[in-house]
Lab assay of single mutants.
Amino acid sequence: TTKIQIRLADGSRLIQRFNSTHRILDVRNFIVQSRPEFAALDFILVTSFPNKELTDESLTLLEADILNTVLLQQ
């Protein structure tokens, strides 16, 4: 498993454990389930350093190389 910290656009944080085989789409779905107010918003996930937009949501967390990292919601 891996721990992902997500810094949300409103300044708050979410921390969740995922399997390395989960997909970026699963992280997006977790955000929307945790904070339904973001469901209607068009947002992207970005790595904190170096900044990289995670546009291919079909990638696993392992394939995207974002295990144990911080993601930013923009």
Rank of each mutant, 00 (worst) to 15 (best):
T1L: 05
T1R: 05
T2F: 15
T2P: 00
T2N: 10
K3S: 11
K3C: 06
K3N: 11
K3F: 14
I4M: 10
Q5L: 07
R7E: 15
R7I: 14
R7Y: 10
L8K: 04
L8Q: 02
A9L: 15
D10H: 02
D10I: 01
D10R: 05
D10A: 02
G11N: 06
G11A: 01
G11V: 05
G11L: 06
S12A: 06
S12N: 04
R13S: 11
R13M: 12
R13A: 08
R13C: 10
R13E: 14
L14W: 09
L14V: 07
L14N: 06
L14M: 07
Q16I: 01
R17K: 10
F18T: 01
F18G: 06
F18I: 07
F18V: 06
F18A: 01
N19Y: 04
S20L: 15
S20W: 14
S20Y: 12
T21F: 01
H22A: 15
R23D: 04
R23I: 09
R23T: 11
I24M: 00
L25V: 15
D26I: 11
V27M: 02
V27C: 10
V27G: 08
V27L: 06
R28G: 05
R28E: 06
R28C: 02
R28A: 00
N29R: 07
N29I: 03
F30V: 10
F30E: 11
F30M: 03
F30L: 02
I31Y: 07
I31D: 08
S34N: 12
S34T: 15
R35L: 06
R35G: 01
P36I: 00
P36H: 00
P36A: 03
E37P: 09
F38P: 02
F38C: 09
A39T: 05
A39R: 11
A39W: 02
A39H: 06
A40Y: 14
L41V: 14
L41P: 08
D42A: 03
D42Q: 02
F43I: 00
F43S: 03
F43H: 04
F43Q: 00
F43E: 00
F43G: 00
I44Y: 12
I44N: 03
L45P: 06
L45F: 06
L45I: 08
V46M: 12
V46S: 12
V46H: 08
V46P: 00
V46I: 10
T47Y: 10
T47K: 12
S48Q: 13
S48N: 02
F49V: 13
F49D: 13
P50E: 15
P50H: 12
P50D: 15
N51L: 13
N51C: 13
N51F: 14
N51T: 14
N51A: 14
K52S: 02
K52Q: 10
K52R: 15
K52F: 06
E53S: 06
E53I: 09
E53Y: 05
E53M: 12
L54Q: 11
L54E: 02
T55H: 13
T55S: 09
T55V: 10
T55P: 09
D56H: 03
D56K: 03
D56V: 03
D56Q: 00
D56G: 02
D56N: 11
E57M: 06
S58L: 03
S58T: 12
T60V: 04
L61A: 08
L61W: 01
E63M: 03
A64W: 07
A64G: 05
A64Y: 06
A64C: 15
D65N: 11
D65L: 10
D65K: 08
D65R: 09
D65G: 15
D65W: 04
D65V: 03
I66E: 04
I66S: 04
L67Y: 06
N68A: 02
N68Q: 05
T69V: 08
T69H: 05
T69I: 09
V70A: 13
V70Q: 13
L71D: 07
L71A: 04
L71W: 09
L71N: 07
L71R: 03
L71Y: 14
L72H: 12
L72A: 05
Q73G: 02
Q74S: 02
Q74W: 09
Q74T: 00
Q74C: 09
